[in-house]
Write a protein that binds this DNA or RNA. Structure first.
Length: 574
RNA sequence: GGCCCCGUAGCUCAGGGGAUAGAGCAACCGCCUCCUAAGCGGUAGGUCAUAGGUUCGAAUCCUAUCGGGGCCGCCA
């Protein structure tokens, strides 16, 4: 139940009735009609702009429409008060029974409360992380991983069918570099000095791979040219790196549905097929590119190569798909990969990239637009940098100096729950500060703690009620204004899921939970001055039954919201 | 040079066509014989970068300018 959409339905039906009675012309577009909580609570529980947005198309005065609409709305039992205000807003105050019902329903529905049918099982593919399989995940990947996973959870709650997918870049030169780096560690495992030349991956995470290679291949690759070992070592090392990455993701609580191998596209005719599809649309040609402006490469010379006419689909310049030597560019398998996604009948695609891939967005969008004839929307979300701090001091990262911070480091230091929540307290496209000291601080400037604390308080009073053998009721008896405020906040949850899902913005869930926790803490404290507002009344079973329902509903929503963020709600604070 | 993101309270940030623009921190004043004060209430703090435009209505949409960041080769 989403009370806001219920009341909007009521408004629309009432408008239809007015049309039937000749009070409004027919054929009006109700699209812009909204029913929302007003910014100022003094304006009531919700407000509709119906009269204002319909005034012009109906050629009527907005206040005139509002007056009639208001009178009609009053006859619905859910509407306690309806007033025309300002330029033509209709402010509504709902009957108290509505809020009682919301609380009861939250408890009854449990974790599924607020889930929406909005998505209508539309198939969405969410591609995220997709880090090169050349080493462990670092902090930057962590943000993408958390964002992608939370967004996927959110879309599922809103009724979409979601596939979480990881694109393994195992087809390019970087996995050859990986193989050569692993080979040196293999030599090292045989007691030889490894020669980690410039450009190879120096990380000691490859030491174990070298040992494993020795285990599997013995000394058969020693002192051999790379033509004898490159392919097998590459295969082996890539698989080892993917195991590492899967482990990193698991530590964060992220599970992918599909791992898609770039290499599988080569030699299978799938790149050719994708380019054929573009060619059939007249979007492939042989030509020369202009040199990039403002950053002229020293050795630039125009060369004839195969180009994708991506400018036809909104890109700034056409993009090469073949190098002048005839080999595929890096972009070619990407085209094939997105062609594959489109062919797998996804209705919508979402790609989550690091901000350094910003320059790639237009060509990928052009690709999907061209391959699907514009029928499959692609949203590309860029996650901005995470700036690391320790006690307010910036934390310098350098691969070379070995102070490079991995996902594992962060999770080991502060725990997956804290990492996940904190990384979701900012919009994806805003940079974010992550201070190792502050994120574990137990105070209200730490939203993770604050929300968890509210949940712990809920669990605490429920435990207490059970211990005392008092009744646990599903039906609240709201009396105090603050109780209604909390109930109204609970009623916003289903609406919030829809808005956050529609905008692909899981951070809204984190902010909402903070607000809900805040209202709940306020109510809790009001119990200090007004003992009758406390939830547990040791010698009064009826009063306890009436009061315990509201915190139970709060617990349901916090727990559901944290579930979307991928954070475990705690039973108690320690 | 081009493209993308950002500019909202002293600081960190929400809000992204709707009414008097919000929260946390920092500052100041209060609240524990009481289910966890790890909390709550209050005061103060604003030309929503600037200038035009669209609209009944703009912090929000459009254009330009200024400022900050990022990206821009057949690399990956």
């Amino acid at each position: 139940m989403n009370i806001f959409s219920d009341i909007r339905t009521l408004v629309v039906e009432t408008l239809d009735a007015m049309v039937a009675d000749g009070e409004l012309p027919s054929g009006l577009n109700y699209g812009p009609v909204t029913v929302e909580p007003p910014r100022d609570a003094a304006h009531g529980d919700m407000a509709t702009n119906a009269a204002m947005v319909l005034a012009k198309p109906a050629s009527k005065n907005p206040r005139e429409i509002a007056t009639v609409l208001t009178e009609r709305l009053k006859s619905d039992p859910r509407i306690a008060v309806a007033d025309v205000a300002g330029p033509g807003f209709i402010n509504l105050i709902l009957d108290g029974a509505v809020w009682h019902d919301v609380v009861a329903e939250a408890i009854d529905a449990g974790p599924g409360f607020g889930h929406s049918g909005m998505g209508a099982h539309v198939k969405v593919n969410v591609e995220f992380v997709s880090a090169n399989p050349t080493g462990p995940l670092h902090v930057g990947h962590t943000r993408g991983a958390v964002f992608g996973d939370a967004l996927s959870n959110l879309l599922e709650a809103a009724g979409y069918d979601v596939t979480r997918e990881y694109y393994i870049n195992d087809g390019g030169a970087q996995v050859d570099v990986l193989a050569r780096s692993a080979y040196e560690r293999y030599r090292e495992a045989h007691g030889l000095d490894p020669e980690i030349a410039e450009g190879l991956y120096p990380g000691d995470y490859l030491v174990a791979v070298g040992e494993a290679l020795k285990e599997k291949y013995g000394d058969q690759f020693l002192d051999k040219g790379e033509q004898y070992w490159l392919e097998e070592v590459r295969e082996f090392a890539t698989e080892a790196m993917m195991d590492l990455i899967r482990g990193d993701l698991a530590a964060l609580g992220v599970t992918m549905d599909v791992y898609f191998s770039e290499k599988s596209l080569y030699g299978s005719g799938r790149i050719e097929a994708a380019l054929k599809a573009l060619e059939d649309k007249g979007l492939i040609y042989e030509g020369k590119l202009e040199p990039p402006k403002g950053k002229m490469p020293e050795d630039w010379e125009p060369r004839e190569q195969t180009l994708f006419r991506s400018t036809e689909h909104g890109d700034d310049v056409d993009r090469p798909v073949k190098k002048s030597d005839g080999g595929w560019t890096y972009f070619a398998p990407d085209i094939a990969y997105h062609y594959d996604k489109v062919s797998r009948d996804f209705d919508e695609l979402i790609d989550i990239f690091g901000a350094d891939h910003g320059g790639y967005v237009k060509r990928i969008k052009a690709t999907v637009s061209a391959l699907s004839d514009g029928s499959v929307p692609l949203d590309v979300k860029l996650t901005q940098l995470v700036r690391l701090y320790k006690n307010g001091e910036p934390f310098k990262m350098s691969k070379r100096a070995g102070t490079f911070v991995t996902l594992r480091d962060v999770v080991d230091e502060v725990g997956a729950d804290v990492v996940r929540f904190h990384l979701l307290t900012r919009k994806n496209d805003a940079p974010l500060d992550f201070d190792f000291a502050r994120v574990t601080e137990q105070s209200k400037d730490n939203p993770v703690f604050y929300v968890q604390y509210a949940h712990a308080r809920v669990r605490s009073v429920i435990r207490k009620t059970e211990e005392l053998g008092l009744p646990i009721s599903d039906h609240p008896k709201l009396e105090d204004a603050q109780e209604y405020t909390v109930a109204r906040k609970i009623a916003e949850w289903p609406r919030l899921i829809e808005i956050a899902a529609r905008n692909h913005e899981p951070h809204r869930v984190a902010f909402y939970l903070y607000e809900l926790a805040s209202e709940f803490h306020a109510l809790w404290n009001k119990g200090n001055d007004h003992p009758e507002l406390r939830f547990v009344h040791e010698d009064d079973p009826d009063a306890t039954a009436a009061k315990i329902a509201l915190p139970r509903a709060v617990g349901v929503v916090i727990s559901a919201g944290l579930g979307i963020l991928g954070v475990t709600p705690v039973e108690e604070m320690r």
